[in-house]
């Protein structure tokens, strides 16, 4: 077989019909934005603010997408994000005394980021263990841990917002590498890594197989428990990265930041082509869905007469519409 590299890629592209559809929607939304609010939309300030907003919930969408991919869900992701930043925040305040040199403060900030990621790993492992070790349905297990992580967050912050971090924190997270904001770099690197894992590695393939039929994976000799725990650990790390971004952006952390993100992240993941029944999906689709949602969201902001709560109507309606659309497309494909 003499398949050239390009033709192979073309084949991948046409095979992923959902990605093509998303890409068309992406272009259509972009054109709509330009047409409706051209001057406001196509301006550097708007792009800057869009770019600042999406990484935090984009990472959560990828995290929840992974949980959906293995046929489960992660309702605790947002609270993993908050708890990891709260613990990292307490760590940073504890070690960053007055009068530390600039360099030491930066080192401490990075150390606290590391703490956040470790918390993400532990929290994800707990989720994974509850699901696979005890057989608790993912929805209930992550509901329980949602309450738990949220609760610990409340206890550690006294229920209010925690601040008073070194100013360097904000400058690290809100800074840029070249002209690319740090948050976008984090988002991109995370998505590339997870995207490769999902589509190119043994682990990613196994996740999809598990998501389709976890009885058959047992009969094929796969280690289901390891698989579920690993998936949730990755989701936990993504959530903690999101937590770091929110922490730096607001220079404060709270136990209940971004509560609305759970719903939004599920919408994005499903819209991005992750099957709510498990077993299907990829990261590039989710990323495209993140960008679409961000554009729609920014566009809505430009209409002063649309209350922000209407966004919920759109998100909910869109989720159902996308699911029904995919269902119709799928059942047509099945008939062939």
């Amino acid at each position: 077989m003499n398949k050239g590299k390009t033709s192979f890629n073309m084949k991948m592209f046409t095979r992923d019909a959902n990605f093509v559809r998303l890409f068309i929607v992406f272009i259509a939304v972009f054109i709509a934005c330009c047409a409706l609010k051209g001057s406001q939309f196509l301006n550097a300030g708007n792009f800057e603010s869009m770019v600042k907003q999406f990484p935090e919930y984009g990472l959560l969408a990828v995290a929840i997408g992974l949980a959906l991919l293995i046929g489960g869900i992660d309702l605790s992701a947002v609270y993993i994000a908050n708890l990891s930043s709260i613990i990292a925040g307490r760590f940073l305040i504890a070690i960053a005394g007055e009068g530390a040199s600039e360099g030491t403060v930066y080192a401490m900030i990075f150390a606290s980021f590391l703490v956040a990621v470790v918390i993400g790993i532990l929290a994800g492992a707990l989720n994974g263990y509850l699901i696979s070790g005890f057989g608790i349905p993912a929805m209930l297990a992550t509901l329980g841990t949602q309450s738990l992580f949220w609760g610990f967050g409340v206890v550690l912050t006294g229920g209010s917002s925690m601040s008073g971090f070194p100013t360097q924190l904000a400058s690290v997270v809100n800074g840029s590498i070249g002209f690319i904001p740090v948050t976008v770099v984090i988002f991109t690197v995370a998505c590339v890594v997870v995207g490769l894992i999902v589509s190119r590695t043994v682990l990613g393939r196994q996740m999809k197989m598990y998501g389709t039929n976890n009885k058959a994976t047992t009969y094929a000799g796969l280690n289901n428990m390891k698989l579920v725990i690993t998936t949730h650990v990755i989701a936990g790390v993504l959530a903690s990265l999101s937590g770091i971004i929110m922490w730096g952006r607001y220079s404060s952390c709270r136990a209940d930041n971004g509560s609305a993100y759970t719903m939004q992240a599920i919408l994005i993941a499903v819209m991005g082509g992750v099957s709510p029944n498990g077993g299907k999906g990829n990261v590039q689709g989710v990323v495209l869905a993140v960008l679409i949602i961000q554009m729609v969201s920014s566009l809505l902001n430009m209409f002063n007469n649309i209350p922000s709560a209407c966004r919920q109507i759109i998100w909910g309606g869109l989720l159902l519409a996308v699911m029904i659309f995919n269902y119709v497309v799928d059942s047509r494909a099945k008939r062939h």
């Binding site: 999809k208 197989m209 389709t212 039929n213 009885k215 058959a216 009969y219 077993g279 299907k280």
Partner: peptide, 8 residues
């Protein structure tokens, strides 16, 4: 149920 992944 046990042997195959029908949607893969």
């Amino acid at each position: 149920v046990q042997g195959l992944f029908m949607e893969q």
